[in-house]
Nucleic acid binder design. Structure first.
Lengths: 237, 237
DNA sequence: ATGTGAGATCTGGTATATCAGATTTCAGAA
DNA sequence: TTCTGAAATCTGATATACCAGATCTCACAT
């Protein structure tokens, strides 16, 4: 018997092992639900959260609720006062800072992507940018949303930064419905397209500093657009 | 009776209400302990964590352990596979990325601090920098560590960014003992002093872009020093 | 020898009970 | 009326029990 040959798997081409992380848990459902509620402005900063009450509303025990609250605490959306409960920490200024955090991290990752991107990935990025141009012309909001995600995710992969990519995911606070509203506006679509194109060119050409600046500008500017829609305010940055 | 006058507190000058957050919980103890173990390299990436086993080692129930693991998961130090447990996600490359994240966020906050710092705070920052100069001369490592924290914390406060400041705290992965080692080296002390002085000057003079560059350079460079000590490796950034 | 699958076992997810700190209530004293 | 403080109550922190998915074992068929 040949050592180390036993654990290989043979399955017909085209069948992938199903990702077990598709499964969801009560904890994650509670987490996402509360997160969306906070971000959607259904709590005010300082509101106290009652674990038992929440558990009852969800029709579950307090255990998954506690775990969900722990996640929210680490995300910075609530604050836990030992033995005194958790209170909401979210407001428009918090949202602004989340955008700034995303801008800082996303521009860093763009910088690295420009330095590290390799042979086939650069053409793929250009291809995505070109598809965005097409979708922008045809006012296809849903395609644009999907392509947008593809675009940023592709940059994340090209940077080979797993931790930074994870960190960025947590700075997201607007959902598909809000994005759709944004992408309805032709002016916004045009601006976003210009920025995406510039970012892609900078990364493909390996100009790390330029990619960084373009990405930061893009995240901050589009973030301000979101803020105006979600909170209807405006601040200097 | 005058409405709204009942809840004020009168106590003699100099007595502060004790901060209830001084209290610690089992959960936080477990969290910090595991975090330090991961960061201290006492696990390998991919190692599985057994909740029951951990709880037994700590002599506590699984509840606080589960909560601690949830925090670590959100921090990005472990990965939770639904119904399959949690595995360690930490390596030198993860540490590098934590430094990059800190550099990105800390430089963003320095930028804002330069824009937002006000009357008394700017002189305080200069004063801290001058104390650092003195401590550097007298090779007082412990003072330097304290001043270092004061310095960065002062910038955080001046930026008036609560969320970013919290986020930065989570990117810290070296403790006092390692810092002491670093601050022993006279060359490192000198370099850090130069950088701190330059950052303070940029912020006080209101040069946001310069403050940002200086801060980023400082965090990345000193981070590399830490990496070399903790992991003994070197990478391009 | 190899592959299969039913059952045993391990382990994370959830529910419930209990403990203890924090807050509120309210009777009684000043 | 105002203040004090003990008791009742609320609520988060912890412990324990139980359930179910995932993994392992191993007899058995091929």
């Amino acid at each position: 018997m040949i050592e180390g040959m036993g654990q290989e798997e043979r399955r017909p081409e085209g069948f992938e092992k199903i990702d077990p992380s598709f499964q969801t848990t009560v904890r994650d459902h509670v987490h996402r639900t509360i997160r969306n509620a906070i971000i959607g402005g259904r709590f005010a900063t300082g509101d106290k959260i009652n674990e038992r009450g929440l558990a009852e509303q969800f029709g579950v025990s307090t255990t998954p609720v506690k775990e969900a609250l722990r996640q929210l605490e680490t995300e910075g959306l609530v604050e836990a006062l030992p033995r005194r409960g958790v209170v909401i920490r979210f407001s428009s200024s918090w949202a602004e800072e989340m955008i700034l955090a995303r801008a800082a991290l996303e521009s860093m990752i763009a910088h690295l992507a420009a330095k590290r991107i390799e042979k086939p990935a650069d053409e793929e990025l250009t291809a995505i940018a070109e598809m965005m141009a097409k979708a922008t012309g045809s006012a296809d909001a849903d395609s644009l949303i999907t392509l947008n995600e593809k675009f940023h995710e592709h940059i994340h992969r090209s940077s080979r930064c797993g931790y930074l990519a994870k960190l960025i995911e947590r700075q997201q606070f607007y959902d598909a419905s809000i994005r759709r509203v944004i992408h309805m506006d032709p002016t916004e679509r045009e601006k976003a397209l210009e920025e995406h194109t510039a970012i892609a060119e900078a990364i493909v050409s390996g100009d790390a500093d330029l990619a960084e600046r373009q990405m930061r500008n893009h995240v901050v500017r589009s973030g301000e657009t979101y803020l105006n829609i979600v909170f209807g305010n405006k601040k200097d940055i």
